[in-house]
């Protein structure tokens, strides 16, 4: 774990990008180790509350999926989370030690017959609030959100 200063970038724009990598235990609630600082940094970088809500939700769902479905709570496995936040971009990469999965195999939770199934909404929420891309193995996902031109 460590904070990597974005050295050598020009002043202004994304020069003030905040980056931090985390390694989380495969336990319930360990997303908190990331979230407090991530939310604070989104605020520091001027992201509006509605965007922060969406990034929070998408990141939470990705980390919970990694712990529960990826690592299946195996204490020998960890979840890596790499965060990068600037004024115009938030990027969060979540990788687990699991076998991976095919995101296309997740049934559509909004189908009439699945509306009342109490699980299976995480990936849809991630996709609704951020752009997401899984790696080939399906054990890692990149979540990204870009902000439109700033006023003024």
């Amino acid at each position: 774990m460590g904070t990597h200063a974005a050295a050598g970038e020009p002043a202004g724009g994304s020069a003030d990008e905040w980056r931090r990598d985390y390694e989380l235990p495969s336990e319930r609630g360990s997303s908190r180790l990331v979230m407090d600082e991530l939310l604070e940094q989104l605020g520091v970088h001027g992201w509006p509350p509605s965007d922060i809500f969406g990034i929070h939700l998408a990141t939470e769902e990705a980390i919970v999926n990694a712990i529960v479905h990826g690592n299946k709570f195996d204490p020998a496995k960890t979840v890596r989370v790499a965060c990068a936040v600037s004024q115009d971009r938030a990027r969060i990469e979540v990788t687990d030690d699991g076998a991976g999965f095919d995101p296309a195999s997740v049934p559509d939770c909004t189908l009439e017959e699945r509306l009342e199934v109490p699980s299976g909404r995480g990936v849809m929420l991630m996709r609704s609030f951020m752009a997401i891309a899984y790696n080939a193995r399906g054990n890692g996902v990149v979540l990204e959100k870009r902000r439109g031109p700033l006023p003024g």
Binding site: F53, L57, E61, E116, L125
Partner: peptide, 16 residues
């Protein structure tokens, strides 16, 4: 202020 999909699951089960 915030709820996750796991919480949605409980609401669905309650509704049922």
């Amino acid at each position: 202020e915030f709820l996750s999909s796991a919480a949605l699951g409980k609401l669905i089960t309650l509704d049922r």
